[in-house]
Simulated assay, not measured.
Amino acid sequence: MFDDDAVKKPRGHEVGMLIDTMSVEELEERIGLLKAEIARLEQAIAARNKTRSEAESLFKL
């Protein structure tokens, strides 16, 4: 009779999602997930910048 999918919480965090019903522990977990994602994105930026810098150095005379 009840839909279990309607009760399940989202696995990830979406920007702008409702947080009013989350516990402190859930909020802290979300912060941890977001910090890990920020670190991953920063690593991707650093890798792309390194690749670009290496490519530019090959074409300089």
Rank of each mutant, 00 (worst) to 15 (best):
R48T: 05
A47M: 05
H13G: 11
D5C: 06
A47Q: 06
S57P: 00
R11L: 12
F59A: 06
G12K: 15
F2I: 08
K60A: 06
L58I: 00
M22N: 03
P10I: 01
K60V: 01
R48A: 15
R52K: 02
R30D: 12
R40T: 12
K9Y: 11
E25C: 05
P10W: 02
E26R: 10
E54H: 00
A44H: 08
K8N: 01
I45R: 11
L27Q: 09
K9Q: 15
V24T: 11
K35G: 06
R30S: 07
L34V: 12
E29I: 05
E28T: 09
L41G: 02
R40K: 13
E25H: 09
G32Q: 11
A6T: 08
M17W: 03
I19H: 04
Q43L: 10
V15R: 08
G16W: 02
L27K: 11
K50D: 07
A36L: 07
E25G: 07
R48W: 06
K35S: 07
E29W: 05
T51C: 01
E29G: 10
L34K: 09
L61K: 11
K60N: 02
I45A: 06
R30K: 15
R30T: 14
S57H: 10
A55S: 01
E26L: 09
A39W: 02
L27N: 05
A6H: 04
E56K: 08
I38T: 08
A39Q: 12
A6R: 11
K35P: 03
D5I: 06
V24A: 12
T51V: 03
R11H: 07
L33I: 09
E14R: 12
R11F: 04
K60E: 06
I45D: 08
I31K: 14
L41Q: 13
K9E: 15
K9T: 14
G32L: 13
V7F: 12
L27E: 08
D5G: 12
V24S: 04
V24Q: 08
P10Y: 04
K35Q: 13
M1P: 00
A39R: 10
M1E: 01
R48Y: 04
K60I: 02
G12M: 11
G16A: 02
E28M: 12
F59V: 14
V24K: 10
L27Y: 07
K50T: 04
P10S: 06
I38V: 13
I38L: 12
H13A: 13
T51R: 05
V15I: 08
F59Q: 13
V15Y: 13
Q43C: 10
D20P: 01
G16K: 01
F59S: 09
